[in-house]
Design a binder for these strands. Sequence first.
DNA 1: TGAAATGTTGGGGCG
DNA 2: ACGCCCCAACATTTC
Length: 438
Amino acid sequence: MQPLNIFWFRRDLRLNDNCGLYKALKESEPVLAVFIFDTNILSQLEDKNDGRVDFIHSSVSQLKTELEKRGSSLLIEVGKPQEVYQKLFDEYNIKAIYTNHDYEPYAQKRDDEIKALAQNKGAQFFTFKDQVIFEKDEVLKPNGEPYTVYTPYMKMWKQKLTEKGTKSFDTTPLLNNFFNAQPFALPTIEDIGFEKTGVTIPPTNASIDLLENYKQTRDYPATKGTSKLSVHLRFGTISIRQLVKKALEASDTFLNELIWREFYMMILWHFPHVIDGAFKPQYNHIQWRNNEQEFKAWCEGKTGIPIVDAGMRELNKTGYMHNRVRMIVASFLTKNLLIDWRWGEAYFAKKLLDFELASNNGGWQWAAGTGCDAAPYFRVFNPTLQTQKFDPEGKYIKKWVPELNSLEYPQPIVDLSSSRKRALQVYKEALSDEGVHA
DNA sequence: TGAAATGTTGGGGCG
DNA sequence: ACGCCCCAACATTTC
């Protein structure tokens, strides 16, 4: 049987500028490209109408077409990676598996298992840095400890990038050393237990052009000011190196957003307790009210606070929410409603197309004031003032809450002023008595 | 990447 | 002309 190497696509659904793929193609063995719909992950998704699965499915289908133009194909499997590889080792003469680093706890465990399996079969398992510029241990304080404050991290990150230069970001031509194969079957989205959602994905080129004015326009949810590139970054349909090159030319503010992403990935790695608790443990004593009905109203965009409802409806309808509005709805949930930030985090995890564990967790802890380098707890957003500042003509609100001026629109579920005072009180108590009443 | 409460200043109305 | 008061505008402090 002809020896070959596998390249395993996961969060890097592109041929161009894909580090692990390029490494694999340089070897003498031909490369068989593989994608697995991982049922360990898919079975966790309650809603079978999930835009992310749809997005992955169409990206994978596109990859397959591109590979078929090159006389190869993409082998698409559905199942648990462990079992899939067990089968592939029986079917093919696999010398090595190439893939890109994946950092989240589940991914680490999965890759450890596959590596062990490969070694068991006398094959090798190689992984490469691809989805970030600097990994968890590449930007550290001079004493070798991880940063816990963004600004000094960001400065060091930029310094490291200057030292490194961006020459290494230039892409080389894709070698055509793919395994010669007839087209493999493409499972339909129904085959993997999901539905078509009609998800719309913003084109990357138009988004990149917006970066010129990013700083001026990004805070105004009614204008096309944000990049909407997050979903492409999430699934690797765009390369971080290309994006950083663009950011260096076009917008330092946007570059800072990319650095926030790596900051939170670094935090998650070094401080895994943030996954289910506050970064600062004293904030684990907050007496959340956790009113189920108020939570439901928040989820559905029926709080009676127009900017909050607009944001939640945008999320529910499109799988996306403008970043300024994410901060507003998060402040409202955690402070005005005193609902546990983890509830909001979990809801975003279900709904956001661009959901990324580290950034979502970091963002929620920032808003709740529980995180590293978070907003201080007494910083409570006033939705009315935020609307005056960032949606003064009410365009964004009208788009998502058309019944605003009719009788159908509900009264606010809380009074903004008194709920703000209540939040200050509850947070203060949690921090002063360390939760002795808990 | 906040907002409210409190403090300070200075112009103008007015006796 | 002068002092007093009011209050808007701005600054600082507090949460």
